[in-house]
Write a protein that binds this DNA or RNA. Sequence first.
DNA 1: CGATTTGTTAGTAG
DNA 2: CCTACTAACAAATC
Length: 277
Amino acid sequence: MPELPEVETIVRDLRDRLVGRVIREVVVILPKVVASPAPEKFASLLAGREITGLARRGKYILVSLSGDRVLVIHLRMTGQLVYYTRPEPFPKHTHLLFYLDQGVLRFTDLRQFGRVRLAHKRELDDVPGLRDLGMEPLDAGFTEQEFVRRLKRSQRMVKPLLLDQAFLAGLGNIYTDEALHRSGVHPERRAAGLSTREARNLCRAIREVLSEGVALRGTSVQHYVDGSGQRGRFQEILRVYGKRGEPCPVCGVPVERIRCGGRSTHFCPSCQKRSEK
DNA sequence: CGATTTGTTAGTAG
DNA sequence: CCTACTAACAAATC
C-alpha cells in the first residue's frame, strides 16, 4: 500500500538509476493498466525518449521525458515499479516492461488497480486525480496555520478527511492511523470539533510519521518494495496499525479496530478519546 | 469458501 | 454546485 513515504522512496531510488537512460522499447502485457493514450500509441510514443527526471506529487510518480512528455504512474494498492540492470525472467503479475539502453523497468501489480498514463507536460494539471490534489504535507509551503484553518472548516470525521487526497496529498490508511494515535485524536472526531491545540498536534504528528516513514524507506506490511525491490522498515515501529488486541506502546491498553469511513481503523481507546480531553 | 484487504472514483442523498 | 458518505473495483490470502 504505497503512501507518501513509499512513493517518495521509490522516486528517489529510481531517480539515481533512471535519469539519463533512454527508452528503447515498451511492452504492454496487460493493456488495461495504460489509462491513455491507447496502448499501441503509448508504446510507440515512448520509444526513443530520454528520462530527464523523477518527481512525486501525492502518491503519484511523475517521470519526465524528452519532448515535454510525462509518464504519470499511480501504484494504488499493490503496484510495484522496480528497476533491474539485467533482464531477469519477470515474475507473475508483470503488466509493463520498459526496456532501456541499460536495464529494464518493470511494472507489476497483483490487483491490477495501478494505472500509467502518458501526458503532455503542459496538460499535467488537467490529469484527473492529479488536478484535485491538496497540500503536500512535507513541503516548506505547508504551514500549521493553514492546515488548522482548513481542518476546522470541515464537518467530516477526521480520519476520512485525512484520507481525502483533495484535502491533503499522500496519507493512506497506515500513516493516518499512526498520526492520529501520536496526536491522541480519535478517528471519529469531527474535524471542526478539534481544539486548536489538538489540530496543531495532529499537524505535527502527520509530518512526523511521514518524515520517519521516508527515513525508514517506507512500510512493508504486505507488498511494498522500493525501486530496487527491497522492503522498508517503518513496520517495525508501528504503534497501532495492524495491532488489534496488542498493548498500546504508550499506555498498555489493547489497541482496538473499528470501521471508520468504510476503512479498517486502529486506535488506542485510552490515548484517543472520543471527546476532547 | 466467504470475509477481508485498500486508493480512488462514480454515484447517491441532502 | 457543494458536502458527506458509500459502493464498486480486483484478486490473493486467511
